[in-house]
Design a protein around this nucleic acid. Structure first.
Length: 423
RNA sequence: GGAGAGUUGGCAGAGUGGUCGAAUGCGGCAGUCUUGAAAACUGUUGAGGGUCACACCUCCAGGGGUUCGAAUCCCUUACUCUCCGCCA
């Protein structure tokens, strides 16, 4: 969420930049500032009322000590009236604060100036493309057919055990999953990210910390008996490591990586676009996350983009990078690059990674700060990205590496799979 | 599941009704010494609101209550730990 002080000082600029998301924030911004003014006024009234009570209490204490009980009792009566007033102000203030934060929760992050305008994914700007799109043999299959043909993923079995969107990986398919996870984690740790294993269920406070709650709770599976949520991404537990923390400047930057399964309730659309591995309720992902000094966060974003590029290059998958337009940008992000791998047999691009800079948007809600060189507490910048999400990478490999004799394994993965062919 | 103890500043940890925003240690910052660093010594150092700056207000897990006055007493919720039980 945005800081009120920031809104107050950059009103026009914020409205102009939010327009890139195709929202007219004029009213919200105006209200936020007005609510804050009102909040301040109420706070002052309350403070004055409390200051008076405090002074009286002190006086009463002294009177009791010096034995002037009658005088003390007189003052006591006065405090009773003050209490009423204080309570009233308190109530009003609470209401105002709540109204303000509800409003703030609804204002998305301000897009970076380089974010292209646009409404949908059509308007995203391609910034990079690499890798050759292979020419497949006649009768090349989409990955769900390949999965069946070689008996490496069983979608129907998942239906039986749980429901749609919970595939079962079998034999070399399962081994390939495990190989990808290990490979990604190795690549990330080699690049300086510290590996973490985090819980797959989080409490309510964590859900609030990263903004899944209060609005998007429908997207998470909820364990009502214990009031815990299954994580939709490792970003939630990993980011909440830093909830309510005050770092030293020398602690920055922090780079962590972790593998988790991800659980998403979202039903999504139907048809070919959600077939097979394209969209699942449970999938595996390796995440990278950074906590940065504000001056360095965009450099860090570039670093993360380059890192993901290296991996895709290493896997020899044809991919492109998109700079997301305002309309496609996530609520909390200031700038996002999406990575898409070309799925040759489906003849479409599949999103495999999304790398974002949230600037202070997450940190503000998390209360993640560092002590800067002036000794002042300042919000950190947070960034994260997938490095990488498994299902669509798997789909990309299956489809792009298929031959008439079977599916070849990318060279970089062979040390992890222990085999070079699925046939 | 049963019984008990606890939750205090960046961290550890004292504090049982007014003199407590809170001892002490560690850490951080600044300085002395040193070619430089370490060590040692000296000073300084919680957060938020508010103000031009002060004043002032709030915060001792969250919420509520008692009281003129609460870190301190009471209720409640969450969490942590110990012992017992169960168990991978």
């Amino acid at each position: 969420m945005l800081q009120v002080a920031f809104i107050r000082e950059n009103k026009e600029d914020i409205i102009a930049r939010l327009a890139k998301r195709n929202i007219d924030a004029t009213e919200m911004i105006k209200n936020a500032i007005a609510f804050d003014e009102e909040r301040k006024a109420l706070q002052t009234s309350l403070d004055n009322s409390k200051a008076e009570s405090n002074a009286l209490s002190k006086e009463i204490g002294n009177l009791f000590k010096s034995g002037e009980v009658q005088k003390a009792n007189l003052l006591k009566e006065k405090t009773t009236q003050l209490k009423e007033a204080t309570k009233g102000f308190e109530q009003e203030l609470n209401d105002k604060v709540e109204a303000l934060s509800e409003l703030l929760y609804k204002i998305p992050n301000v897009p970076n100036t380089i974010v292209p305008a646009g409404n949908t994914d059509e308007d995203n700007e391609e910034t990079f493309r690499e890798g050759d799109i292979p020419t497949l043999h006649d009768g090349a299959l989409p990955h769900w057919e390949l999965a069946k043909k070689y008996n490496i993923i069983d979608f129907e079995l998942g239906n039986k055990i749980t429901g749609a969107g919970f595939p079962v990986y079998i034999g070399k398919g399962a081994r390939l999953q495990r190989a990808l996870i290990a490979y990604f984690l190795d690549k990330n740790t080699e690049a300086g990210y510290t590996e973490y294993q985090v819980p797959h269920l989080v409490n309510e406070a964590s859900g609030f910390g990263t903004g899944q709650l209060p609005d998007k709770e429908g997207q998470m599976y909820h364990v009502t008996l214990d009031n815990l949520y299954l994580i939709p991404t490792a970003e939630v537990p990993a980011t909440n490591i830093f909830r309510d923390t005050l770092l030293n400047e020398s602690d920055l930057p922090i780079s962590i990586t972790g593998y988790t399964p991800c659980f998403r309730r979202e039903a999504g659309s139907y048809g070919a676009h959600v077939r097979g591995l394209n969209r699942l309720h449970q999938f595996d992902k390796v995440e990278i996350l950074r906590v940065e000094h504000p001056d360095n966060s965009y450099k860090a974003l570039d670093g993360m983009v380059n890192h993901v590029k290296d991996i895709l290059k290493d896997l020899k998958l044809p991919y492109r990078i998109l700079k997301l337009c305002g309309g496609d940008l996530g609520f909390t992000s200031a700038l996002t690059y999406d990575f898409e791998v070309f799925s040759t047999a489906q003849d479409r691009w599949l999103e495999v990674s999304s790398v974002s800079n949230f600037e202070t948007f997450q940190a503000n809600r998390l209360k993640l700060r560092f002590k800067n060189s002036d000794g002042k507490n300042e919000l950190c910048h947070t960034l994260n990205g997938s490095s990488l999400a498994l299902p669509r990478i798997l789909a990309g490999i299956l489809e792009n590496y298929q031959t008439e004799d079977g599916i070849k394994i990318p060279e970089a993965l062979i040390p992890y799979t222990g085999f070079d062919m699925i046939s």
